[in-house]
Amino acid sequence: MNRCMSEIRPRPGVFELFAGFFVVGVCGFGGVLPWARWMIVERRKWLTQAEFTEMLGLCQFLPGGNIMNVTIALGSRFRGVRGAVASFLGLMTAPVAIVIGLGAVYDQYGGLPPVRRAFVALAAAAAAYLLATALKIASPLRGRPLAIGVATCTFVAIAVLRLPLQAAMPVLALGSTLLLWRFRT
């Protein structure tokens, strides 16, 4: 399991893992990925860039939050289950506390017209941000009609027909894998 780890760099302890990911959680406005990469590769040098990219690839391939999975994969690689738990708690503690604080503030003042209007506009912009992210994620599909067809089917199944994801996901994932494998270039 530790095959790819460099022997030269020091192995972080449980507390260091917590502290490192705590900083990532606090800093990660508008997405934690850039901060996680900076902390792991540049600041603490726990992994090389290549090792990080490979770990991220695995974590994107698995279900669950990508960086959340990175805390588990990296923590367990250095310090087993305890390391995974410490990294995860480091990442999540501050953001969960902050978001609940924001929720409480919104509950208190959300009825005021300027606050309410601000939130209507913020919600519209947040949805637009997700649209821009979706386009970025879909951009590697350009020029691949089969992949675009699969993405369109997925979109229609979920957004238009509103099929339950538990039923649709296995069919879509398996169908897509077989189809793209059969017609691979």
Partner: peptide, 23 residues
């Protein structure tokens, strides 16, 4: 590799659906 390639367009479609429903 086949599974990873197959999941890619499904993920893209899912996130596009998320954006459409939120909007």
């Amino acid at each position: 590799k086949a599974l990873q390639a197959g999941l890619q367009p499904v993920t893209a479609g899912l996130i596009m659906a998320s954006a459409a429903l939120l909007i």
